[in-house]
Computed example of a mutant assay.
Amino acid sequence: MPLRLDDVERAAAAVLPDAVRDFVAGGSGAERTLADNRAALDRIRVVPRALRDVSACSAATTLLSRQVAMPVATAPIGYQKLVHPQGELAAAAAAKAAGVPFTVGTLSSFPLEQVAAVGATTWFQLYWLRDRALSFDLVRRAEAAGCAAVMLTVDVPWMGRRLRDMSNGFALPDDVVAANFTTGTASEAHRASPGGSALAAHTSTAFDPSLSWADLEELRRRTRLPLIVKGLLDPADAVRAVEAGADAVVVSNHGGRQLDGAVASADVLEAVCAAVAGRCEVLLDSGVRSGTDVLKALASGASGVLVGRPLLWGLATGGAEGARGVLGLLAEEFRDALGLAGCSGVAEARRLRVLRRASQDGTGVGEGAVWR
Rank of each mutant, 00 (worst) to 15 (best):
V177Q: 14
R357F: 13
V354P: 01
L16Q: 08
V150W: 14
D174K: 15
G231M: 02
R279Q: 05
W128Y: 07
R350Y: 12
S167A: 15
A73D: 00
V54F: 08
V305G: 06
V346A: 12
T185L: 13
V288D: 13
A179P: 05
G184P: 15
G345C: 15
D36Y: 05
W123R: 04
W213S: 03
P101R: 02
D18W: 10
H254K: 02
L352A: 06
A271L: 12
V326M: 13
A201G: 14
A198Q: 09
A299R: 05
R45D: 09
A145Y: 12
V346P: 15
R289V: 01
L34Y: 07
A320H: 08
Q67W: 05
A274V: 02
T317R: 08
F124Q: 07
T74H: 00
R351F: 07
A50G: 00
L338W: 11
L134K: 15
L311E: 00
D22G: 11
A73Q: 15
G314N: 11
F23G: 06
G169K: 09
S167C: 02
T203L: 14
A341V: 07
A266I: 01
G308T: 05
G184D: 12
G318F: 06
G291Q: 04
C343L: 10
R224K: 14
P310I: 02
A201H: 11
A142S: 08
N180E: 05
T106Q: 12
V115L: 14
R191T: 07
A349V: 12
A69S: 14
A236E: 15
V100M: 10
V249G: 01
A145R: 11
E367Q: 13
E113L: 12
A92K: 06
V242E: 03
A73H: 03
D285E: 09
N37D: 09
A347L: 13
A206C: 14
A90E: 12
R49L: 05
D165G: 04
D285M: 03
E217W: 00
A12Q: 09
R162Q: 12
K81W: 02
M70E: 01
V72E: 09
S109M: 13
E367K: 09
G291R: 07
E348T: 01
R309S: 03
L129D: 02
L311A: 01
L352T: 11
A148E: 15
P235R: 00
A347H: 14
S109P: 09
G245V: 04
R43K: 03
P157G: 10
L134M: 13
D361T: 07
V100T: 08
Q125A: 12
L112E: 08
A341N: 13
E270T: 05
D260P: 04
L41I: 06
A56T: 06
D18S: 12
D6Q: 15
V354H: 13
D285N: 06
E218G: 00
A277K: 10
A262W: 02
A117L: 11
N37T: 09
R162C: 03
D137G: 04
D237K: 04
R161F: 03
R191Y: 03
L352M: 09
V20H: 11
G146E: 11
P209F: 09
V229M: 07
S55C: 07
A133P: 11
A244V: 04
L295D: 01
A35M: 11
G27R: 02
P48G: 02
T74I: 07
F181N: 08
D267R: 09
W128N: 01
W123H: 08
Q67V: 04
G160N: 12
G319A: 11
I77Y: 00
G291C: 04
D36P: 00
C343R: 14
G99R: 10
L126V: 02
